[in-house]
Design a protein around this nucleic acid. Structure first.
Lengths: 198, 198
DNA sequence: CATATATTCTAGCATTGCTAGTTTGTCAAT
DNA sequence: ATTGACAAACTAGCAATGCTAGAATATATG
């Protein structure tokens, strides 16, 4: 019978299948970070995992879902980085600056990953009941450092996040001067903390 | 000879050619705003202007340049909208809020245009000697309302712009709550003007 | 009229995401 | 061992894309 004495076999198969899915995501990420997302084609991924193309579609509905899987990893890593940037010894102002700097460092150190997370179509669903925790944790880290300065923490965090995202995107596209990045961070920190000098 | 008595002919031809180029850009914009940029294909544009596909490549090097031409129009329009948002009777604080609101209204009313201006590859060159004026004027309008509150106007304007761009993008991607848009604008206005209540 | 020069078109290449339909492998029941 | 049913994977191909070489056509020049 199908689920008979040798249950271990189907479990092993499930593991191997899971492992193959992982290899697809790893390959997608690797290629994207080295050659850009345009080079992440189904054919190239199929070559990489040494299976034919249709196999990929038994793991993901379409290419966008593969990008989404990489993006999800990214959100998890970003959350960790932002949390780590909050030193217990730092003042509230320093905490803001630290998180802002860490956020932008992430964006510029991993442009392909950032692109998957915020630019490319991924099919990821935000602000839903089934939203993965990775998508919430980064927001939580930012909220932590914003809270001391805000009445409406959620709205203030959204605004802080938007400012960081805008800085990342405009600089990535060469619209603002890279040399003044730290000045802009300082400005945001002063504005949020209400210590703006003029 | 080539430039003989009938100079008018070649001038008429140049005009017609110019006109044909315009029609390409208009068609691209129209299709993009109705069906999205993915529907703006060379074949569809060729159909629209009733010429064969290779003709497009005598006007633009590639598809990206067509997107760029549309984006350039968009920068001109955005600049006008931002300037118009600065009412002479308004206080400096109101001016900031007005420009911010106008910016986001533009982004949400013309998503395809905004995408061409800020997301898609266009080949447009910023911060160069040959940078078209359209690309500078929008920045200028923002700088006008930021100047009363800033020491380093350029850096402060870059930061303000980044905040607006981030708000537009995160909301467009469903990452932040649309219902709180005006709250976030108020927050930015208060932060920039140093009137943050906490 | 003949010839050179632009202009425009036809036809096609290479690449993409995706899928239908077939082949191959697996495993329980005979 | 053989068979038959089911699952897994592959081959082959479709339709669409950006772009281009080379042929055909129109236009201007001698």
């Amino acid at each position: 019978m199908k689920t008979g004495a040798k249950v271990g076999i189907s479990e092993r198969k499930a593991r191997e299948r899971e492992e193959r899915g992982r290899r697809i995501v790893v390959a997608a990420r690797t290629i994207a970070e080295r050659d850009g997302w345009a080079s992440v084609t189904i054919r190239r991924l199929a070559d990489e995992i040494e299976y034919s193309q249709p196999v990929l579609y038994s793991h993901f509905q379409n290419r966008d879902e593969i990008v989404g899987a990489v993006a999800l990893e990214g959100f998890g890593e970003l959350a960790g980085i932002l949390r780590a940037a909050i030193r217990p010894s730092s003042t509230p102002e320093e905490a803001i600056e630290g998180v802002a700097t860490a956020y932008l460092d992430f964006a510029f150190a991993r442009p392909a990953m950032y692109e998957a997370m915020f630019i490319l179509p991924t099919g990821l669903r935000f602000a839903r009941s089934d939203t993965p925790t990775q998508l919430r944790e980064g927001f939580g880290a930012m909220a932590t450092v914003i809270a001391p300065f805000a009445q409406d923490v959620d709205t203030a965090t959204e605004t802080f996040w938007a400012a960081l995202h805008g800085l990342a995107e405009l600089e990535r596209h060469g619209r603002i001067r890279p040399a003044f990045r730290s000045h802009r961070i300082t400005l945001i920190m002063q504005m949020v903390s209400g210590q703006l000098q003029r």
